[in-house]
C-alpha cells in the first residue's frame, strides 16, 4: 500500500493501479524462430528481485496509460517513474 506518482495524473493511491510485472522484457522479433527454452524464458522466467526492480504499471482507474517504475520490493519505496519508451532514469 503506497502512493504512485502517475506521470500523467500525479500522485494517486496504489489501489488505482495494476502492476504489469517486470519491465524491459522485449518481445522477440522473430517468434517463429524461438526454441522452447527461449519461449519459456520470455513468457515465464522472472528475476523476481528482492530489492530494486524495474516494472510496468497501468493506471487502470485513472488515465489507463502504461508507464514504468523503479521500486524497492523489500520496502515498497519508489525511486523513479518514467514513461513507456523512455530510458530508465537510474541504473
Amino acid at each position: 500500500m503506497f502512493l504512485i506518482n502517475c506521470p500523467y495524473c500525479g500522485e494517486r493511491d496504489q489501489s488505482e493501479f495494476t502492476a504489469g510485472g517486470e519491465a524491459h522484457i522485449v518481445r522477440p522479433k522473430q517468434p517463429t524462430e524461438l526454441s522452447d527454452n527461449q519461449w519459456a524464458e520470455f513468457l515465464f522466467m522472472r528475476k523476481n528481485i528482492k530489492g530494486v526492480q524495474f516494472e510496468r504499471w497501468n493506471h487502470t482507474h485513472g488515465c489507463r496509460k502504461w508507464f514504468n517504475m523503479v521500486r524497492d520490493t523489500s520496502n515498497d519505496k519508489i525511486y523513479a517513474v518514467y514513461k513507456m519508451g523512455e530510458k530508465p532514469p537510474i541504473k
Binding site: A40, M45, K47, T73
Partner: peptide, 17 residues
C-alpha cells in the same frame, strides 16, 4: 524467497513473490 536463492546461481524461476 526462492527466487532470492535461485538468483545466487543465476537460475531464473517462473515465480513472482
Amino acid at each position: 524467497h526462492s527466487s532470492v536463492i535461485a538468483n545466487m546461481v543465476d537460475l531464473k524461476l517462473p515465480l513472482e513473490s
